[in-house]
């Protein structure tokens, strides 16, 4: 039982006797305050991320009926659900970033160019275009999102914006798995030079559009 003061008083001689560090010498948190994004910027970026995830899972939903390969249909089922959960998590972060309660369901394209890019990625329709469909999502959009999410995690305020980092960590982990699966499927589908050429051509075409519009937040120079 300590004989010293348990609670501080008002005078300078009335301090408690507790040492500032515990006997376990807990290491100090060396992370520094300050990140690249303020609250408003992070909120806008999260709305942009939500837009990408929402539209991506919607287009994958549309394609379930128009891809003939059964393992592609069944594999996409889970990716759609994980995409919806990602959009949902981003949405739940928005009211925490001073966007109002209703903001949880709001998505916003980084700029009109990115909205057009999403529609272009979603354009392939007929059953002979699985390569083009998969390339758009698994060679272009998802890898781009992983880069942007990782950069956001590194450059945002590590302590103040930690809840966003937590959300992104989980989404990146799953998205990397989606990309690995998509690449495996694409590698198998592209079993001739002509098909590999189709994949590369589609990838190049979409990457050009991505660079032109600046990607998911419209600011590729800062994001990649």
């Amino acid at each position: 039982m300590s004989e010293g003061r348990m609670y501080p008083g008002t005078g300078k001689d009335e301090r408690t006797t507790f040492a500032p560090y515990s006997a376990f010498d807990i290491p100090q948190d060396l992370r520094e305050l300050h990140g690249r994004y303020d609250v408003e910027t992070t909120a806008r970026r999260v709305r942009n991320f939500r837009y990408a995830e929402e539209w991506m899972m919607m287009m994958l939903g549309g394609w379930l009926a128009t891809v003939p390969e059964v393992p592609v249909k069944t594999g996409l089922g889970k990716i759609i659900w994980e995409g919806a959960k990602a959009a949902d998590e981003f949405g739940k972060r928005l009211p925490e970033l001073r966007c109002g309660k209703r903001a949880a369901e709001s998505s916003e394209a980084g700029n009109p160019g990115f909205a057009d890019l999403i529609q272009e990625i979603a354009a392939p329709e007929t059953p002979d275009l699985t390569i083009e469909k998969m390339t758009g999502v698994f060679d272009v959009l998802k890898p781009h999102l992983v880069k942007v999410y990782e950069r956001h995690m590194r450059e945002t305020d590590q302590i103040a914006d930690a809840p966003t980092i937590e959300i992104l960590e989980e989404i990146v982990r799953k998205t990397e798995r989606h990309v690995a699966w998509g690449h495996e499927i694409l590698d198998r589908l592209c079993d001739t030079d002509a098909k590999r050429q189709r994949r590369h051509a589609r990838q190049a075409e979409l990457n050009e559009l991505l660079e032109k519009c600046g990607g998911v937040t419209g600011d590729l120079a800062l994001d990649h």
Binding site: E54, M57, M58, G61, L64, V70, K73, T74, G75, L76, G77, K78, I80, W81, G83, A84, K85, D88, G91, A104, E105
Partner: peptide, 18 residues
């Protein structure tokens, strides 16, 4: 949005059913 969440979940369920 909740409708989309339900349909997305159903996609995963039906994929498992297949």
């Amino acid at each position: 949005w909740e409708f989309k969440m339900n349909m997305a979940r159903q996609c995963w369920d039906e994929a498992r059913h297949v």
